[in-house]
Every structure is written in structure tokens, then in C-alpha cells.
Design a protein around this nucleic acid. Structure first.
Lengths: 327, 327
DNA sequence: CCACATAGAGCAACCGATTGCGCAAAACCG
DNA sequence: CGGTTTTGCGCAATCGGTTGCTCTATGTGG
């Protein structure tokens, strides 16, 4: 009620100052006596005055918004990942006084992205999943719009923040090897996804010359079932799952086959999530921090928007969770 | 490249007109000859000119943004629901030339909501989950900010768009009754959630005087397991699950108990989602359309923002999917 | 044919901030 | 103490639109 719309003029009038002085007191730019500045700061704090971002944006040619662009059609694991990630983005944005505009895109439909950029609603964009020959990337590059890719991408010459999947998977794999596993099966998902390749690479680097069996494109329960059967026939003593969903299906299949973990064989996942929360024994897995990833990504975008130079690829850490499933 | 920032002045100059004429041609307000108007429209179409929303917003006192406010800590089912819902919101918003600003809130932390409203970044807000004595609702009411609640809420005197859970559950339940089930067990989740109450109510209305057993607050696998055991001891011939996650856990438990569906007993869920996609037999369930819900919600918010009167409660339809699990 | 209404377009103020420039007072300095 | 610098602040233009009002050319009616 009291907040009926205070403007900088109101503040100026109330304090017997000019708009410019008030503006400079708030921004800290320009020459202002410490005393005057404090007076202004106190007053706006007390009255809860906030500069109108439209006006601010108009004169500074900024929107104080970043675009959060994610696929509109993804599966549950991704949703959970994006949600955690978004938390980090929102937090980092708020620190720079930015807000987050959300839109979705499809494989061939980037109209949502075009909307927010052509309408000048964002200063930059964070891109969730990317594909080979990604249309969104092509578009953003052509238009010269600042953007950062969060997560894995094949595209070179793009600014990207990701977890170091290769290193992480290599480390987990070599730990398993040191635990004495002899015949290891890797069950991976969609090879269209770049991250699948990274995980496989890390796996192979970690296994070196050990005996392995690799089964890819296990994108549904039937294919996973077949892969598990093949792995068992191969005489595996350890199954490594590329992600949590696959691991879930593997665990289900093992139950059906009445195989005990870790007695009959060990199981590990390269991606930990809530989905793996309820198993006994608990599953050994690689843990990342999507929120941290989102935060870092947004900070990087802020840096670009503010004209700073940033590294093309930024890698974040991970954690190896050794649990009962590989005991 | 060509799009280096066209303004209304550029358009006016190029056409030998004044800003006002261009502006009126675009908006369609005021007196403009059809001929001139078409000339302007053609030109901006060709040059892909878009009015700067900051400037537009500044003079109209509008932001052309709506806030999408969801909990920051929800489980997977909700995420999936929100994502589908968001699709509808984004679509409806775009039609009114609005975009969607996203932020999250916690049970006691509405700082994200305060940010976007106090900073004048949105014209209205869509509220996802609400709680009893919801802080966000209280805040929005007090400040007089337009908002709509999507989904169930206890709060009275609030504008709300929801599926008619009571009617839907009543209908599915009475169909089951007609199929001849005699002893039915209802396994429900968190009674803190308003929708749980609605579903139970619909269930009870549909069952009338039939023999039932009700088990609530089954919020994890252990409690669901116990509930299923009790239901079986009770001699149930049909288990009704309040939502998809519970149904998942129930199916798992039945498998463990080596009970066949629908031979030993029937199973139905009051909420269909991707999580139930893979069972054989397929699960009888109530299907809603979250995208439609989001669309309707956003349209309602648009109406409020534009000063139209809207009904307090708007109910959307549902679909009963009869599948093998209740054959 | 003249008075008057109306259509079509432009002028300029305004929305609420930022910022370059100018000016007076204070500070500094030899 | 006079001249120069520095400090603190205000004026006014600007960002890119919208809109009330004004002005002229055309249309209408008696």
C-alpha cells in the first residue's frame, strides 16, 4: 500500500537533492560526498525504494535479464538436473541484480529463443542441452548474442561450463580396477548425447587393458535387459552404468534375475541422483553439484556481458561416492 | 548483423513519417489511413523491427513479463508436472507478447518472489504449489499484485485454475465399483498437500458405502510397503493409489510379494504420468493435461492484468484411462 | 460558397532512470 | 592572498517508445 510507486524524483524531492545526485549515490559512480550519499542510502533503505529496471535498462541499454533456454521435451533425469542447475543460475543472477527469463526450444524449433532475443528481452543466454549442428548455437553466434553452454557440447569455439566427465569417470573406473574387478561391462545410453562419449572415454582410459564389454544406446528397459543378460553371459563381475536411469533399470533386471549386489557382481553409476536414493546396498556413483554448475555458468555469462574475457572451457569438480554396491 | 538496433525513429525517418504515426500504425490505436498503416507494417515486417519492450514498458507502466513461481525443492513428479505446465504458460504468454520470468521459493523463504515484484520486473505472478497459510499468497494479496494459483489450494478468495480432482476421482472410483470390486484400499501421500484431500474425498464419494481401507501419509517406500501389507491382510481386491509415485512403489511391492496384477488384485492410480509408462499390464489412471492447465492459468492472469473480471475458481477436465491393471 | 466537422499526421511532453557537462564553493599551494 | 585544482552538485539531453493536443487539408451540409 505504502509502496504506491516511488520514483527517483520523489526521493530527490524529499531530500532536496537532484535526480543526478540520487542516482550517483546509489550507483556509487561520480563525485558525491560521503555524507550526502549515506543520507540517500538511508532514505531509500527506509522507504524501500527500488530503481525501475525498465528505465534503468532503457538508458543503459541493458535488460537485466538472462535467458534460460532448455529443451521442452526432456526426460526426468534432465528435469531434475535442470532444476538444481537453475537454482544456481537464479542465485548468481540475483547477485548481479539480474533475473531469469525462461523459454524452451525443440530440436528444430528455436522460436522461443528468437522471441526473447529479437524482442530485446535478455542480455545473454544460457543454453541447456545442445545437439550436433545445434541450431540455437548457430543462431546465437550469427547474431553475436552473448551465451554460455551449460553441460557437454561438441561444438568448438563456444564458451562452456561443464563437469569434467572424462576425469571423473576415469577416476571411478580406476578405483574399481584397484578393487580387483576383472571383467567389466559398461552400459551406456544415447550415443547422440555428447556426455555419453565422454563417460565412455573416461571409462576406457581408466580400464586400460582390462577386459571390458561395452553396450551402447540402451535407451529403454528392453535394451538394458538385453545388455545385462549379455554382460552376465560375458561373465562380468562389475557393471558400470552411464547414468542413474540406466542404473535403475539395471538394478531392476538384476533383481529379476535374482542376482545379488555386490555378492554376485558389483554395480556403479557414473551419475548420482535422487533416483538412486533408495537402494540397499547403496550405489557407488559419481556425484556432481548441478547447483554449483549453474552458479558458475551464470557468473561466466555475467562476465561476458560485462565485456570481460573468459576461458572457453571451464571444468568443475566431482565427488566419488563409494558405497555398498562395490564393496 | 543487419539487425544492429533499429528504433522507431529509424523507421519513421526511412518512411518520411513521424514516430507517432509509426507507433499508431503498429498499435492500431488512433487515426491512421489504411494506406500509411500498411506501408509501415510492410516495412517493419521486412526489416524485422521490434519495438523495444523496455521503452514500451516504461511509457505504458508494464513489464510484459509474468512471474512463474515454483518451489525450489520439489520431487520428480512435481517437476514433470511443472515442466508440462510451463509449456502452456509460455505459449499463452507469448500470444499476449509476454515472457516468463522464473523464480523459486521455499516454505518460509519468499525472497525470490519479493525480488521480482519489488523490482517491478513482472506484471503478475503464477503461483505453483501453495501451502496452508501460504506466505506468498499473503504477500501478494497485501501488495495487491495480480496473481493466479495453478493447482490445488486451500486458500479461499483466491483466483485459481485447477483440475477437478474430486469429480475425476469420484468417476474413476465408481467405475471400479461397477466393475465389481468389493474391498478397496486407498493409499495416499502427504496429507499436508491439499490435493490429497480432494482425491480422498472423490474416492469416498465414489465408493459410497462399500468396504474400504484408507492409508494416508505414505511418503516413502517403507510406509507404502506397510500400507500394501495391511491392504492385503484386509483382503483387498483393488488398490487405488493417490498418485504415480505411490503407484510405482505399490507395483514394486506387489512384485516383491509375488502378487499378480490384475489377477490377484487390481491397481489404479489417480494420477497418470510418464512414471507409469512402462508397466505390463498398463495402469488404469486419471489423465490430466498440465499444458492445458498452464495455458488456461496464464490466460486468466492476462485477463486480470488487463482489468477484466474473472471467476475465482476455474476447473479443467480429465480423462479416465482404463487399462489392463483393472481388467 | 461558406461554416463547420473530421480525418490524417506531426509536435512535444512524458515514462524513470543515467550521464556528460557546467558551475560555484571549497581546498590547495607557492 | 590570488590563482589553480578539486569537490559536490545540478541542468538538461538521452534511451525508445506512447499519447494528448494541435494543425492542416479534405469532406460535408445548408
Amino acid at each position: 500500500m505504502d509502496n504506491e510507486k516511488t520514483t527517483i524524483d520523489d526521493v530527490a524531492k524529499a531530500l532536496g537533492l537532484s535526480k543526478s545526485t540520487v542516482s550517483r549515490s546509489i550507483s556509487g559512480k561520480g563525485r558525491i560526498s560521503a555524507e550526502t550519499r549515506q543520507k540517500v542510502l538511508d532514505y531509500i533503505e527506509e522507504r524501500n525504494y527500488r530503481p525501475n529496471p525498465l528505465a534503468k535498462g532503457l538508458s543503459e541499454s541493458k535488460t537485466y535479464n538472462v535467458g534460460w533456454v532448455i529443451p521442452g521435451d526432456d526426460h526426468l533425469t534432465s528435469l531434475y538436473f535442470y532444476q538444481r542447475c537453475l537454482q544456481g543460475v537464479i542465485g548468481a543472477a540475483a547477485k548481479a541484480d539480474y533475473d531469469v527469463l525462461i523459454t524452451t526450444i525443440g530440436k528444430d524449433d528455436i522460436s522461443g529463443l528468437k522471441r526473447i532475443t529479437e524482442n530485446h528481452k535478455v542480455d545473454g543466454v544460457i543454453l541447456g542441452r545442445t545437439l550436433r549442428k545445434d541450431k540455437a548455437i548457430r543462431y546465437l553466434k550469427e547474431k553475436g548474442i552473448p551465451f554460455v553452454v551449460v553441460g557437454s557440447t561438441e561444438e568448438k569455439g563456444v564458451i562452456q561450463v561443464d563437469n569434467d566427465h572424462v576425469a571423473a569417470c576415469r577416476e571411478l573406473t580406476s578405483i574399481l580396477k584397484m578393487k580387483g574387478v576383472k571383467r567389466v561391462a559398461f552400459i551406456g545410453g544415447d550415443t547422440g548425447q555428447v556426455v555419453t562419449g565422454s563417460r565412455l572415454q573416461g571409462f576406457q582410459e581408466g580400464m586400460e587393458d582390462a577386459r571390458t564389454q561395452i553396450c551402447l544406446d540402451c535407451v529403454n528397459k528392453d535394451r538394458v535387459d538385453r545388455a545385462v543378460e549379455e554382460a552376465v553371459a560375458f561373465g562380468t563381475d562389475c557393471i558400470v552404468c552411464e547414468d542413474d536411469r540406466i542404473c535403475q533399470m539395471v538394478m531392476e533386471k538384476l533383481k529379476e534375475m535374482e542376482l545379488e549386489v555386490p555378492t554376485d557382481l558389483k554395480v556403479a553409476s557414473f551419475y548420482d541422483s535422487k533416483l538412486l536414493g533408495n537402494y540397499k546396498p547403496q550405489i557407488t556413483a559419481l556425484k556432481y553439484d548441478p547447483t554449483e554448475l549453474g552458479k558458475k555458468t551464470c557468473e561466466t555469462l555475467m562476465a561476458i556481458i560485462n565485456g570481460k574475457k573468459v576461458e572457453n572451457r571451464q571444468m568443475l569438480g566431482y565427488e566419488v561416492l563409494l558405497k555398498g554396491s562395490t564393496q
